[in-house]
Computed example of a mutant assay.
Amino acid sequence: MKMIRSKICGFTRPQDALAAAQLGVDAVGLVFYPPSKRFVSIEQAQAIVRVLPPFVSVVALFVNENTERIRQVLAQVPVDILQFHGDETPEFCRQFNRPYIKAVRVQNTDDIIAAQQQYPDARAVLFDAHIEGEYGGTGHRFDWAMLPDQLSGHWILSGGLTPENIGEAVKITGAKIIDVSSGVESAPGIKSAEKIAALLAAMDEPNISEPE
């Protein structure tokens, strides 16, 4: 039985998103942050979403974007969940009447606890590595030992996850939801079906979802 839900973020090509969906990925992430190597235009996003089968969630990622631009994307791309990866306030995140995920760049355990308290209505809080000046997709991991033993609500493990370390990551953290970007790429924004398949296979190893 599949126990761990997966999102692959930073698609730029329809064929890669379709391959991921066919392999069993639960959600695809589209990056609407212009400085990112994985940035997509509205037209690119539309083409990617068009090929997806039903029941695969589309997540739109923004970083300190203005309200007008986000509404413009929502009006033209069928987005299921918003993901905010910058310094957005809870009030900003909830104004779009859409489920949202709030990403937090972790430096210490206090960051984790504070984020869960600050964004109580988020669909989930996502924990990523803190790299100065970068907002996700860095290929770096944070110290998983900083995660408290008991975390309330839904949370997502991200940051430097690969097919090679996903088993260790899940065993140590007990994560039930993971978000991967650079760890399954052949180049920035170009996803490898082989790496995605290897990631999902490693996640589905017997007893992998039981933390030690």
Rank of each mutant, 00 (worst) to 15 (best):
G29C: 03
L30G: 09
V31H: 02
F32I: 12
F32R: 07
F32D: 04
P35D: 09
P35V: 08
S36P: 05
S36H: 04
R38H: 07
F39Y: 15
F39H: 13
V40A: 10
S41C: 10
I42N: 06
I42C: 07
E43K: 11
Q44G: 04
Q44A: 09
Q46K: 14
A47D: 11
A47P: 05
I48K: 04
V49W: 06
V51D: 05
V51N: 09
L52R: 02
L52N: 01
L52Y: 01
P53N: 08
P54T: 11
S57T: 10
V58F: 06
V59M: 08
A60P: 06
L61G: 01
L61F: 02
L61H: 01
L61T: 03
L61R: 00
F62P: 01
V63R: 01
N64D: 15
E65Q: 12
E65L: 04
E65W: 00
N66Y: 12
N66I: 13
N66D: 14
T67M: 13
E68D: 15
E68W: 10
E68I: 13
E68K: 12
R69C: 12
R69Y: 14
R69S: 14
I70F: 02
I70N: 01
I70Q: 00
Q72T: 14
V73E: 04
L74T: 13
L74S: 12
Q76R: 15
Q76L: 14
P78W: 03
P78E: 01
P78V: 01
V79S: 03
V79Y: 04
D80T: 09
I81A: 02
L82R: 04
L82F: 06
L82D: 01
Q83F: 01
Q83C: 03
Q83A: 02
F84T: 02
D87A: 11
D87T: 06
E88S: 08
T89C: 06
T89L: 05
F92C: 10
C93S: 12
R94G: 08
R94T: 15
Q95D: 10
F96Y: 12
N97C: 12
N97H: 13
N97I: 05
R98M: 14
P99V: 11
Y100M: 00
I101V: 06
A103D: 04
A103T: 08
V104C: 11
V104N: 01
R105D: 07
R105M: 09
R105G: 07
V106G: 00
V106H: 00
Q107E: 15
N108T: 11
N108I: 13
N108D: 14
N108E: 14
N108A: 13
T109S: 15
T109E: 14
D111I: 07
D111W: 04
I112M: 06
I113V: 15
I113F: 08
I113K: 11
I113H: 10
A114N: 15
Q116D: 07
P120F: 10
P120V: 11
D121M: 11
D121G: 08
A122Q: 00
L126W: 05
L126K: 05
L126I: 11
F127E: 04
F127V: 10
D128K: 09
D128Y: 06
H130N: 12
E134A: 13
Y135H: 10
Y135S: 05
G136L: 04
G137K: 02
G137A: 07
